[in-house]
């Protein structure tokens, strides 16, 4: 997992400050419209555990960054993760659900406003020794837009000691992770109030507690024929017509149960027999919660 460091942006960047412990902010760079920082959920990590890192962006008022799904414009955060393989391994990024925005003409994007927090799991090696340090370096670039778009980039680093005493997250850190996890879509289980039916090219998503529904298609999903028309609906039913394709329908369903509260589900249609990745993630999350 030890990757060659990208040098392309080196001359353009204020560098992060390595060598500090715990939550580490980017060096002051007030000209960024989306300001990133790395936050570790704990001040230290144990061998064998999963340590969660938040790549946490504060986005300037009226600006937005992009979700890595179906969009008409822009592109999402790109990262290069560097961590010493004998100490830790980085897993897949977990993305929060986006917001849908559209222009008067119907140019439609799925974006993040105010905050974007992407979660990165670091699995600490069983062979990591107490007293060693997890040194994580994240090189990133992203597009941030208001009426116009700007490419921004940063290189951040964070160092977390290997220790038996992992401590408890500060209230501020706990709040960042709580907010991030509240926007993570979850697989639909039998007990969830969502039903999916297909009729010809159309998929109908129904949820009885819903006041409003929205579907955010993944980039590699079978494409909706008219996402502007079909992507959201008031009420309990959302019917989306798709183009002909053998690709599965993939994305995120947001179910508003009130004007300010919503449930988020991952959509995979037709359903898979099992979802090993989602299950593994759930186990990871629950085992970590237990560890706390």
């Amino acid at each position: 997992m030890f990757k060659t460091l990208a040098l392309a942006f080196a001359t353009l960047l204020p560098l992060g400050i390595p060598g500090q412990v715990g939550a580490q902010a980017h060096s002051k760079s007030s000209d960024l419209h989306a300001q990133p920082r790395l936050v570790a959920e704990q001040m230290a990590a144990k061998p064998g555990q999963t340590l969660w890192i938040a790549i946490d962006f504060t986005i300037e008022d009226q600006w937005h960054t992009y979700w890595p799904g179906t969009n008409d414009t822009g592109f999402p955060l790109q990262t290069e993760i560097e961590v010493h393989p004998q100490i830790a391994a980085a897993g897949d990024l977990l993305w929060p659900a986006p917001h849908r925005i559209s222009s008067p003409q119907g140019i439609l994007d799925h974006v993040f406003e105010d905050h974007m927090t992407v979660l990165l799991p670091l699995t600490i090696s069983n062979n990591a020794r107490l007293g060693e340090t997890v040194s994580l370096q994240v090189s990133m670039r992203w597009l941030v837009c208001k009426t116009a778009c700007i490419m921004e980039s940063a290189e951040l680093s964070i160092q977390i000691p290997i220790s038996d005493a992992i401590g408890r997250p500060s209230p501020q850190t706990a709040a960042i992770f709580e907010r991030a996890r509240s926007r993570l879509p979850q697989p639909i289980t039998d007990s969830d109030p969502v039903t999916i039916t297909q009729e010809g090219p159309s998929l109908t998503l129904t949820s009885t507690p819903a006041e409003r529904l929205a579907f955010y298609p993944s980039e590699n999903s079978r494409p909706p024929r008219n996402l502007l028309r079909d992507g959201q609906a008031e009420g309990q039913t959302l019917t989306i017509e798709f183009r002909e394709s053998n690709d599965p329908i993939l994305g995120v369903l947001e179910v508003w149960t009130s004007p300010t509260e919503s449930l988020l589900y991952t959509i995979h249609w037709p359903p898979e027999n099992n979802e090993p990745r989602a299950q593994a993630r759930d186990q990871e999350l629950s085992s970590f919660t237990g560890d706390r």
């Binding site: 849908r100 925005i101 559209s102 008067p104 959201q232 509260e261 919503s262």
Partner: peptide, 8 residues
């Protein structure tokens, strides 16, 4: 959490 907003 909020519904779609039009770009203002």
């Amino acid at each position: 959490m909020s519904p779609e907003r039009k770009l203002g």
